[in-house]
Computed example of a mutant assay.
Amino acid sequence: MTRKLGGGKLVIATHNAGKLKEISALLAPYGTDCISAGSLGLPEPPETGKTFVENAVIKARAAAEASGLVALADDSGLSVSALDGRPGVYTADWAERQWFEGDPGRDWYMAMGKVEGMLQALGPDTPRDCWFCCVLALAWPDGEYLVYEGRANGTLTWPPRGTMGFGYDPVFVPVGRDVTFAELEPDEKKAISHRADAFAKLVADQFGV
Rank of each mutant, 00 (worst) to 15 (best):
D74L: 08
D74M: 09
D75M: 10
D75V: 11
D75S: 09
S76I: 11
S76N: 09
S76G: 09
S76D: 09
G77Y: 00
L78K: 02
L78G: 01
S79L: 10
V80M: 06
V80W: 01
S81W: 10
S81A: 15
S81T: 13
D84K: 12
D84P: 01
G85E: 06
G85P: 12
G85R: 05
R86E: 15
R86A: 15
P87F: 10
G88E: 06
G88T: 14
G88A: 09
G88K: 01
V89R: 05
V89M: 10
V89Y: 04
V89E: 08
T91R: 02
A92V: 15
A92M: 05
D93C: 11
W94M: 10
A95Y: 01
A95K: 07
A95P: 05
E96S: 12
E96H: 09
Q98L: 10
Q98R: 15
W99E: 13
W99C: 13
F100H: 14
F100A: 11
E101A: 07
E101G: 11
D103A: 10
D103F: 08
P104Y: 10
P104F: 07
G105E: 11
G105V: 06
R106C: 08
D107R: 05
D107V: 04
D107Y: 06
D107C: 11
W108A: 00
W108E: 03
Y109D: 13
Y109R: 12
M110T: 13
M110F: 11
M110I: 12
M110H: 14
A111T: 04
M112A: 11
G113S: 12
G113K: 11
G113I: 00
G113M: 09
G113D: 12
K114A: 13
K114L: 12
K114H: 13
V115T: 08
E116N: 07
E116L: 04
E116V: 09
E116K: 05
G117V: 03
G117K: 06
M118Y: 04
M118K: 14
A121N: 01
L122V: 06
L122T: 11
L122D: 09
G123W: 14
G123S: 02
P124R: 11
P124Q: 05
D125W: 00
D125I: 00
T126A: 10
T126M: 06
T126C: 08
T126Q: 05
P127F: 02
P127M: 07
R128I: 03
R128Q: 05
D129L: 09
D129A: 05
C130Y: 00
C130M: 14
W131V: 09
W131E: 14
W131N: 13
W131C: 13
F132D: 01
F132S: 04
F132E: 03
C133P: 03
C134R: 00
C134V: 08
C134W: 04
C134K: 00
C134H: 00
V135G: 00
V135M: 02
V135A: 06
V135S: 01
L136S: 03
L136R: 05
A137R: 01
A137K: 04
A137S: 01
A137N: 04
L138D: 00
L138P: 02
